[in-house]
């Protein structure tokens, strides 16, 4: 069976420091300065040389792995190891510097709850807007509307502009829309359990049922318990490279072991 997600040697380079001039004024200033200090010939050489001299880091380097349909994969690693960057590349928000990825199916990315929510619009209007942003068609949202409102527990306020919602209501509504996505592939970045304790439990339950519905999920979280509960496979990333991939418990062991050694050293 062909893997539903195939990542082949993906690398992502980020340039550091000020990314060149950010205004025409700066551009002209630095150009003039260089012209008078370095001289026109050197300046011309500098403009036409490769970009490699500029300071950069590789947020991801040669990342390769495959995911089979139905797998729930957890991306584990310390802050800054490239997990979120990888997710952003796979959700097409940004592009790799090298390599390629093939995604065989419709996907949706949940990198934050409530993307596109606008304060002046009512809960109802925001459900439609947010759902469409996440990739749902209008008919689909209409069908699921009642289920979404019911899950979010904000039925009484559904026609009030969300600028009047409490923060808890806001995240409950946002999570509810995201939880009713039907795309076969989901990229989830730490949006999990939001709201108060009771709602958090509902969230975990819903995520579990989503996980068992045969969908493929790529999941990034710092919550070790959630990863252990939901994922059957793990990919351990360190400084932009894949260290290992295997069953979740093994990967979590590796992660915590590494942490221990680093603290000691």
């Amino acid at each position: 069976m062909k893997p539903i997600i195939e990542v082949q040697n993906i690398s992502k380079k980020y340039y550091l420091g000020m990314l060149g001039a950010t205004s025409i004024r700066e551009l002209l200033n630095s150009f003039y300065k260089n012209l008078t200090q370095i001289g026109p010939i050197e300046l011309f050489k500098g403009l036409t040389s490769k970009e490699n001299e500029r300071e950069h880091i590789w947020a991801l380097k040669d990342v390769s792995f495959s995911v089979q349909p139905g797998e729930i994969v957890g991306l584990i690693g310390r802050n800054g190891c490239g997990k979120s960057t990888l997710l952003r590349i796979l959700s097409r928000i940004t592009f790799p510097t090298e390599g390629r990825a093939v995604i065989r199916g419709k996907s949706s990315a949940l990198l934050e709850v409530g993307t596109g929510f606008h304060g002046e619009l009512s809960g109802r209007e925001n459900i439609f807007l947010n759902g469409a942003i996440l990739g749902m068609r209008k008919r689909e949202i209409e069908k699921k509307f009642d289920a979404i409102v019911d899950f979010s527990e904000v039925e009484k306020f559904i026609d009030t502009p969300i600028k009047h919602y409490s923060s808890g209501m806001y995240v409950r509504l946002a999570f509810s829309v995201a939880a009713h996505l039907e795309q076969p592939i989901l990229f989830v970045d730490e949006v999990l359990a939001v709201g108060d304790g009771a709602f958090q439990t509902k969230c975990i339950e819903k995520m579990k049922s989503v996980a068992h519905s045969g969908r493929t999920i790529l999941f990034v979280s710092h919550d070790e318990k959630a990863v252990r509960r939901l994922c059957n496979r793990g990919i351990y990333l360190k400084q932009g490279r894949v260290v290992a991939t295997g069953p979740t418990s093994e990967m979590l062991e590796l992660y915590s072991d590494d942490g221990k050694f680093e603290n000691v050293a």
């Binding site: 790799p96 990825a101 995604i103």
Partner: peptide
């Protein structure tokens, strides 16, 4: 048809 997306550099 298969909703396959290829992401490359």
């Amino acid at each position: 048809l298969n909703s396959t997306t290829v992401i490359d550099a």
